[in-house]
Design a binder for these strands. Structure first.
Lengths: 137, 137
DNA sequence: TTTGTTCGTGCAACCAAGTTGCAAACTTAT
DNA sequence: ATAAGTTTGCAACTTGGTTGCACGAACAAA
């Protein structure tokens, strides 16, 4: 299991330090996305700056992706194994207005948009807001 | 012209105070969206809190809509005349990674997403990132 | 093994955006 | 004219994000 995590880091060319293993473990256990402040609370004693830089490193190396769901804090989630973070790899995110959690809808790709002339496309952030199945009960 | 602005406020049931007229005037003159800090700079002496509350009022009454383009500050833009801010009224926004401006692509409606079972839909925030025609020259 | 360099971590400080409480000024209805 | 409700301005604060710096671990070369 921990080997799994370690090899995941290595496969993305990230040196597997103790800190990074811990952070990746937490990320792996998440069902929904997680923000930096939330991540902080998962640790007894952890430095915000370190966690911040860890997330940045992970993101640069395409181990995780970030979503701005409009909640005020950026959320992070593991990328799919084969993700290159190209526009065609992107999926829709769902923000529940009740529990404030944001979920990756990995099965729903971001629709292709026909941009007006001379606009170039680099990436897309698509967040659908509503109420999640758990909160609708 | 100012009558136009005033009547626009009234039509949305917003009391047309001096401050609000000024703010709406600025908003009307924008080609792209504008953030609260940017709006602040448009006035010599203006209180952040007042502008903040003015924008909130405008938004609640569906005179303007907000977009979180991931730049760190929420942007605002006038709604189309007939906009009710329903999901089917929503359009795509474009964020230029060079000039950092965000444009309403009013002609491009947000695509309809087929959500998984038991997710309800309230609204959608869709931001396409790339380079705008002006910056590509 | 020692040395030097690179990289990661922790602490503190900082910045910017957003937000709130409160009192003064202004409206509006009675 | 007065009371009740709204809007405004000021100040203070919260929070998320970010940076500078120094210490320490890892690592490679001598």
């Amino acid at each position: 299991m921990n080997e799994n995590i370690e090899s995941k880091l290595k496969s993305k060319n990230i040196k597997p330090t103790a800190m990074r293993l811990l952070v990746l473990k937490v990320l792996s256990e998440q069902k929904s996305t997680i923000s930096l402040p939330e991540l902080e609370k998962k640790f007894e004693k952890a430095d915000k700056a370190t966690l911040y830089r860890t997330l940045k490193t992970f993101e640069e190396n395409k181990l995780i992706h970030s979503i701005d769901d409009g909640s005020g804090s950026v959320k992070y989630a593991l990328c799919q194994d084969d993700c290159k973070c190209y526009p065609e790899d992107l999926h829709v995110h769902f923000f529940c207005v009740k529990c404030k959690k944001t979920y990756c809808l990995n099965d729903i790709p971001v629709p292709v948009i026909d941009l007006p002339m001379n606009f170039s496309l680099e990436s897309v952030n698509m967040v659908v807001k509503g109420v999640c199945p758990i909160c609708r009960l």
